[in-house]
Nucleic acid binder design. Structure first.
Lengths: 222, 222
DNA sequence: CCTCCCTTGACAGGTTGATGACAGCTAGCG
DNA sequence: CGCTAGCTGTCATCAACCTGTCAAGGGAGG
């Protein structure tokens, strides 16, 4: 909470505290910058008129440092241009004084809610990661270039690590019923995958006569 | 865009289209639910008064299904309780009619920005910078002249660097339901972008059979 | 030592993407 | 109201690369 007006600050701090949130109340731009350098906040409520500088500058500073903390701006001026500027400077929301506390609370809830989205839907084995949505594969964070078939095959294997897939299993899943391919095709792609994933902490193992499985290497204790 | 009033709808659709965004305009709650089941949107602008039900119900339905698409609610009533209800039902923002289009655009930008994960107001990859507000693109600070479609395509790619976008992903985002285009259109615009961004430290790469991605070239330490 | 199965290199065919030319359309302007 | 300029998207052609078969060389297990 960055706010230099006593009564507004007290009211807001009181309201959030009653809701069970911990609040730091800073009254200057400098103090706020210091606090932000030390602490990681879930939400910043920022007044624009500060004794030692504009809240806009503080906001710009925050964003230029790459901080993604949601910011809710408070101001006394209701001009449309002010709001547009605030939002384009990197604010997430905007409220004009005087405001209703219920609305402040609601907007704060909406911003906090946003935070915890984005479930991880990626498949991984060791340092090999496959994102089925973008169909991109990375090894230690570095992108690996795979072709469509190679990714399709890897996706099957990595979806159930340690499970053994017979060649006919793989053929059925990779090709429709009609356009079957020879069993060699699988062996071929296994080879190509191994080559492209060299250096990974996961390995495609052959079980003679049974099929293939992907396994994560135990720590090489080297 | 969910809105049953003709003139408001036309104005908003026109504004976003001019900015290079693809817009689907639904006039009923039922139609919107159908569209949402099929398509993945970057933003939903939702009017509350609909002929076949309340927008609140649609909003609740969206959230109950786990969809995290940002929702901006439009309404004619300025009551505080309405706003609080909207935000608590899962809306991300709220605007009272009549509103200024600049503000609608700014709020839409803020919501879209948040989804991309970056809190900063400009998108960049290497020395290529895109300012969504002015829809201007610069290369090493020098302005590059791009057309609407070119900017829209670049905006998608640069919003998530390294991510691979399939051609159908791009088609869905660039064109609404109505004016679909052939896959060649994408290839064409990729080519045009590459030509206009020649010499940049970022590059649009082709992953055959999978799609396109934008990557920043590692420093050539020359 | 022998057999079967896997591995790997090379190759032909087919699919996918790149590119130049062109027509429809929109918008701005006189 | 008509005209021009530029944006848009389709077609056709060509190049690049993926795909899967063949065949020849290993290696594990009996």
């Amino acid at each position: 909470m960055v706010e230099d007006t006593e009564d507004v600050g007290e009211a807001v701090v009181g309201a959030f505290t009653r809701l069970g949130h911990a609040v730091d109340w800073q009254k200057t731009r400098a103090g706020s910058a210091d606090a932000l350098a030390v602490q990681d906040y879930a939400l910043i409520v920022l007044d624009i008129n500060l004794p030692d500088g504009s809240g806009f500058d503080l906001l710009a500073e925050i964003r230029s440092k790459g901080l993604q903390t949601p910011v809710l701006v408070l101001t006394a001026r209701a001009l449309v241009d002010d709001r547009v500027d605030a939002l384009d400077t990197g604010a997430d929301d905007y409220l004009v004084k005087p405001f209703d506390f219920r609305e402040l609370e609601a907007r704060a809830r909406a911003l906090l809610r946003r935070r915890q989205g984005s479930a991880t839907t990626t498949l991984s084995a060791g340092n090999v990661v496959l994102d089925p949505r973008s169909r991109a594969v990375t090894l230690d964070g570095r992108p690996v270039e795979l072709t469509r078939r190679e990714i399709a095959l890897l996706e099957i294997l990595i979806g159930q690590p340690d499970r053994v897939f017979s060649k006919s299993d793989l053929l059925d899943q990779l090709y429709g019923f009609e356009n079957e391919a020879g069993p060699n095709a699988i062996e071929l792609y296994i080879g190509r995958l191994r080559k492209k994933l060299a250096g990974a902490s996961a390995e495609i193992r052959t079980l003679r006569g049974m099929g293939y499985q992907i396994v994560v290497n135990k720590a090489p204790r080297a």
